[in-house]
């Protein structure tokens, strides 16, 4: 393909994007667009899969059958969401195995939030409320993104995640209205998860290397800071409703902007966790690697069986 063809194609691509059209797998797209999408979608997929671990930690200890069942259903959904997202990435010409190996080798990233431990049952409530709450803000935007398969995957995820946030908030509200110990558990969990949840939206856009490009291509429609602000504005009244204090002394409502102002985020902590030095990075990776290693003979057997059946036919 010569340069002038490439320029024409790029112009046409840009005009399709600005007209709000969806790009589909077989359509022409700039190599950067494809690469950025693969990186972003696979990170999203890895996050769903690794995200099963901190919550899965409490399935066997859930305090009632109702809670046990809804937590299991929720963690199961995360596996489903991981699958939808891997499939969306696969439409861009990568193989799921390839992506999983990138995760297992430490080459690919996943959301830093899942490197924090779940220490008491209230963590399960707070994760549903904060972490799923933040994810929904992000995914609602991504459901409108320019890449068709990614947009459809997020649409499906948003539909299913409706119950995740509610089951989390219900746990929080029940415990907040419960015994002194339960209130303490919730407050403790809120104190530990609040700031890491704000970090989930990523660094401020002027420090985020990928943001401008992703916005231009309408992979993202809002900046990290805008999404973070939306999350804070949604969450503060929800905390007030159950008499829970968010651990930020600078939290103030600004009547003029109609937004909640909040304090400074400790980005040093964020980068430290991203680089692998969070409280649970090693455990999370070890758990995924173990599942993959222990499962290798099973996957191999399934393929071998199919081959034999085909040969016998």
């Amino acid at each position: 393909m010569n340069t002038s063809d490439e320029t024409t194609l790029l112009e046409r691509f840009k005009s399709r994007i600005s007209a709000g059209e969806k790009i589909e797998p077989k359509d022409w797209m700039p190599e950067r667009y494809r690469k950025q999408l693969i990186r972003m979608i696979s990170q999203h997929a890895h996050s769903e899969v690794v995200g099963m671990l901190p919550e899965g930690n409490w399935i066997t200890r859930a305090p009632s059958l109702r809670r046990k069942i809804s937590l299991l259903a929720k963690v199961q959904d995360e596996a489903g969401h991981g699958m939808y997202l891997y499939s969306a990435a696969e439409t861009l010409g990568v193989d799921r195995r390839e992506l999983i190996e990138q995760l297992l080798s430490g080459q690919a990233k996943y959301s830093h939030i899942f490197n924090y431990p779940t220490l008491n049952w209230a963590d399960i409530g707070v994760i549903g409320w904060f972490v799923d709450g933040a994810a929904i803000v992000n995914q609602t935007m991504l459901a409108k993104c320019s890449y068709g398969p990614y947009s459809r995957a997020n649409l499906r995820i948003c539909k299913e995640e409706n119950f995740h946030k509610r089951q989390g908030y219900e746990i929080v509200a029940t415990m907040a209205a419960g015994t002194t110990e339960q209130r303490e558990m919730v407050q403790d969990a809120v104190n530990r998860w609040w700031w890491p949840s704000l970090m989930m939206f990523g660094p401020s856009d002027n420090e985020s290397p990928n943001s401008a490009e992703l916005l231009r291509w309408k992979v993202k429609l809002h900046s990290n800071d805008e999404l973070r602000q939306r999350f804070v504005d949604l969450t503060v009244p929800q905390a007030q409703a159950v008499n829970i204090t968010l651990p930020d002394s600078e939290l103030r409502y600004d009547k003029k902007t109609q937004h909640w102002n909040f304090g400074k985020i400790n980005w040093e902590e964020f980068w430290n966790v991203v680089k692998g030095n969070g409280p649970c990075n090693r455990e999370r990776m070890a758990a995924r690697q173990k599942a993959d290693n222990d499962g290798a003979w099973v996957r191999e057997a399934a393929v071998a069986y199919t081959m034999k059946q085909r040969m016998n036919r």
């Binding site: 899969v49 069942i69 596996a79 599942a291 499962g295």
Partner: peptide, 22 residues
């Protein structure tokens, strides 16, 4: 069976075993 959730040999099986557990 719920102990398998997050640790199964393949993602599809995480979902299958969880369904049965549920």
């Amino acid at each position: 069976l719920s102990e398998w959730c997050g640790h199964a040999p393949i993602l599809e099986e995480d979902i299958a075993l969880a369904n049965i557990a549920l």
